[in-house]
């Protein structure tokens, strides 16, 4: 359900109709940005990373949250290594 893919807005094509160009790994497509501009001018969303679904930018990707998720996973990896080391040394 609901295929979505991150892409970066690289240009505005029609400010009045809230249309912009998104770039996904070099493939470009015109998308509607009505859902992600909020109170900003349409032009201000150039450079935004957005989640694209059926020709609409549906969400502004929150970089801090992405980093946070990866940080949690890194920490989990470190914790797992410690557990493994403890098991190996017979302390568990």
């Amino acid at each position: 359900m609901c295929l979505g893919i991150p892409g970066r807005i690289v240009a505005i094509t029609d400010a009045s109709r809230k249309l912009a160009t998104v770039d996904v790994a070099g493939v470009k497509r015109e998308i509607n940005v009505a859902c992600i501009i909020g109170d900003r001018a349409v032009e201000d969303c150039v450079g935004d990373w957005v989640l694209v679904h059926v020709g609409f930018a549906m969400s502004l990707i929150n970089e801090e949250q992405a980093i946070e998720t990866l940080r949690i996973l890194t920490e989990l990896g470190e914790a797992q290594q410690e557990i493994a080391a403890m098991r190996a040394s017979g302390r568990m």
């Binding site: 893919i5 996904v24 790994a25 070099g26 493939v27 497509r29 694209v52």
Partner: peptide, 12 residues
């Protein structure tokens, strides 16, 4: 090619 990978991601 990265672009082909991207093309496939967009269209599933």
């Amino acid at each position: 090619r990265a672009e082909v990978a991207g093309f496939c991601e967009i269209l599933g």
